[in-house]
Amino acid sequence: MFGNKVTAGRTTASVDGDAVVLLIGMRINHFWAVHHWFPVLTAMPRMLRELSRAPERGLLGHVLLTASPRTYYVVQYWESKEKLYAYAHAPDMFHRRAWAIVNRKEKAGKARQHVGLWHETYVVPEGSYESIYADMPAFGLAAAHGQVAVERRGRSAKERFAYKSGTTR
């Protein structure tokens, strides 16, 4: 999802308004229980493909990360928490079916702690985030929301934190 074309100089993310960030991941608790954790591992790429085909659902960008050989997660950037919730609860989307399977396994006692799941959602109000990228391709917030010259939002972190939508520099 992120490009490789380097943007020369210093840039910042072109976010207007709040930033919605979802961290979601899994931890393999028992490597030998492949039949429990492999479907979970492959579910996220399937959901990301589904969302990439439906940009109106609100996913702006994502980064797949590995924290350790047993822990994997995704940083996702969303248009709004409402669109994130709508996707999570949409009966026609894969997330709803995948979560129903997880819940059924837990209720039937078949999960047995082989795989752990987690997520954290943050709605970061405007004026409470800032970013800077130096000689980087668009990444993170900048890939999700666009990239602008740093001077448009402020030369210092303090100025970028103070930036409000609709103001110009």
Score class of each variant (00 low, 15 high):
F2R: 07
N4W: 09
K5P: 06
K5R: 13
V6P: 07
G9V: 07
G9S: 06
R10I: 06
A13C: 10
A13I: 02
V15N: 01
D16T: 13
G17H: 06
D18M: 00
V21E: 11
I24T: 14
G25P: 01
M26I: 08
I28G: 03
H30N: 11
H30P: 03
W32Y: 14
V34E: 15
W37A: 01
V40H: 00
T42C: 01
M44L: 13
M44Q: 09
P45L: 00
R46K: 14
L48A: 04
E50D: 13
S52H: 05
R53C: 09
L60I: 11
L60H: 03
G61R: 03
V63F: 12
V63P: 00
L64V: 12
L64D: 04
T66I: 07
Y72W: 11
Y73V: 03
E79V: 12
E79S: 12
K81C: 01
A86F: 05
A90G: 05
A90Y: 07
P91A: 12
D92Y: 14
M93K: 14
M93D: 08
F94L: 15
H95P: 00
A98K: 02
W99I: 06
A100I: 04
I101M: 09
V102G: 04
E106I: 14
A108C: 03
A111V: 08
A111K: 04
H114A: 12
H114Y: 12
V115S: 00
L117F: 12
W118S: 09
V123Q: 13
V124Y: 12
P125H: 07
G127Y: 01
S128T: 11
Y129V: 01
E130K: 02
I132F: 04
I132N: 04
D135W: 04
M136D: 14
M136R: 14
F139E: 07
F139C: 05
G140P: 11
G140N: 10
A142T: 03
G146M: 02
G146A: 03
V150Q: 02
E151L: 05
R153C: 03
R153Q: 02
S156F: 06
A157E: 09
A157H: 10
A162M: 02
A162W: 00
A162C: 04
Y163S: 09
K164P: 09
T167Q: 15
T167C: 13
T167F: 00
